[in-house]
Amino acid sequence: MPRNHAGREGSPFTGIGPVYMKELADHLSSIRMLVLTLFIIVFGAFPVASSLQQLRTTIGSDAYLFLRIFTIEPEQVPIPFIQALNFVIPLMAIGLGFDLVNSEFNRRTLSRVLSQPLYRDALLLGKFLAGLTTLAVALMALWLIVFGAGLLLLGLPPRGVEVARALGFLMVAIAYGGVWLAIAMFFSVVFRSTATSALCALGLWLFFFILWPLIAQAITMAFVPPEITSLDQFVGLQQLALALQRLSPGTLFSEAVLALLNPETRTLGPMLPSQMRGAIMGAPLPLDQSLLLIWPQVTGLIAGMIVVFSASYVIFQREEVRA
């Protein structure tokens, strides 16, 4: 059986710098990147514009007015900004990642590049990091646009805590993009054909968005006993449904973002009367408490990214370079 690489010499990161720089340059100068950026701006700007319009008319004493730009559900467009992002970020990540590795096969550049002094580790990691950077740059640009538009149109500077929460939101969005980038790259390692890998990644994306909520519901229904006799039983079912939902990265993203941008959010699961004791309804949580609340979601996203990346890494190591 194939020997593993135990005992090989030299750093696995040799050559990662040039790979990263080249991939980044490729991404940033590609037409695809331009299209994706346009896409995300159109998708993002529309809800933001309409929510800003609405916010200008409602002058209230909202302490977190600035964050409402992201979360409010505008009247004209019934999609809040974060919902749009939840949907579009995966598409963007898939667009960047679906041909990262198999295009090297198809252009027959893989064996030539791998005959230079670098390990496959460096190639894969360099490509992934370059994709993630590209994604981060695009999201950051979008974030700044929204922020700037908010400043101009609301005429109201955000408070420090709002900036911090919005920054946290940006980080979560990047981690969410990273998961989908890793998934797209995984398919690009598994399939030699770029069309197949794009199709599979998009298929998974649609599956998580359309089918999975229904399937999760159906599975939960199967566990419903003929009669619910206790509160525990009911809570158990609720938690099962949530746990299934949370297998989708989109759920983790929207939960984390909800808690960050809506400081009033106290729990992301079913709320028990015992948890309500002493709570002032509608009072915002301090930032550190919100962060604690979303910690599992964020860890889940990052862990998912690492797991999927490792899977592609293992497969890529075993792949034959000859076409």
Binding site: R8, E9, G10, Q116, P117, L118
Partner: peptide, 9 residues
């Protein structure tokens, strides 16, 4: 097997 970088250089 053990020193691929040296060989490939």
């Amino acid at each position: 097997v053990r020193q691929p970088l040296e060989v490939k250089r």
